[in-house]
Design a protein around this nucleic acid. Sequence first.
DNA 1: CTTGACCCTGTAGTGACTACAGGGTCCATG
DNA 2: CATGGACCCTGTAGTCACTACAGGGTCAAG
Lengths: 130, 130
Amino acid sequence: MKAFTIGQLGDRTGVNVETIRYYEKIGLLPEPARSAAGYRQYGDDHLRRLHFIRRGRDLGFSIEAIRALLRLATHPDYPCQDADRLAAEHLAEVERKIAELERLRHALGEMVNCRAHTVAECRIIDALAS
Amino acid sequence: MKAFTIGQLGDRTGVNVETIRYYEKIGLLPEPARSAAGYRQYGDDHLRRLHFIRRGRDLGFSIEAIRALLRLATHPDYPCQDADRLAAEHLAEVERKIAELERLRHALGEMVNCRAHTVAECRIIDALAS
DNA sequence: CTTGACCCTGTAGTGACTACAGGGTCCATG
DNA sequence: CATGGACCCTGTAGTCACTACAGGGTCAAG
Ligand SMILES: [Zn+2]
Ligand SMILES: [Zn+2]
Ligand SMILES: [Zn+2]
Ligand SMILES: [Zn+2]
């Protein structure tokens, strides 16, 4: 029984200590045992679960999506179509965002080569004001 | 002197009425005159300014960047290098976001073709738990 | 015994809105 | 002239996923 503190859990997962407490508060990470002084004591289950959460966040899944994926992950016998749907929806959203940002990149790229010296002839101000 | 109401200003600029009041509250749009009943009365200056704001937001500029760009826009004799810098920085940020989202798209694309039937063999759950 | 790194709770702030709640006003129709 | 519905007002609270304190307690090394 090698338990570790919240700081050690943060170091091992790359998650901020404040964020770990926040995940506990919203019920994403279960409340751990406490030491006599009230310090949180984490075990390997918490470590695995927080790694899962961290990877989900790194992939851009929302907290609610991760909550659903965690619920699924604890039931290996369930059909996985809910997980597949969540991932497909998220991929579609990522692609939509990329398309939107590429539109912005194009528009900004047109504006950015401004050789003017004053605001009166500035391409950027002109693009916004016209 | 044809003044219009907040609803008409919203219709003409495509900006939500609540958002217009919010812009006023944060000092982005100046307080307009009021009718006897307290209704806001907008003129062409407000219309132009809100159009400017709207275009800036559509291009993804932050409120603070738009505030700075608006300040510049009222001084045609100023050098425009601040505007150019703001646009270049924003373009760089957009490109950074695109790169990040493309990383996500790639990672999600690898996961998404899951032909498993249960969570135990699901590619998505596996990618997160491993 | 002191120092500094860690831990605790609880609250408030971030950005850019959005959504009420609880009222007042305007105008066209009956 | 009354009434109904669309509009307007203020002010506050909620969204998302954290992050930043304030004000304390605890632990281990020197
Ligand atoms: Zn099960
Ligand atoms: Zn310029
Ligand atoms: Zn000037
Ligand atoms: Zn699957």
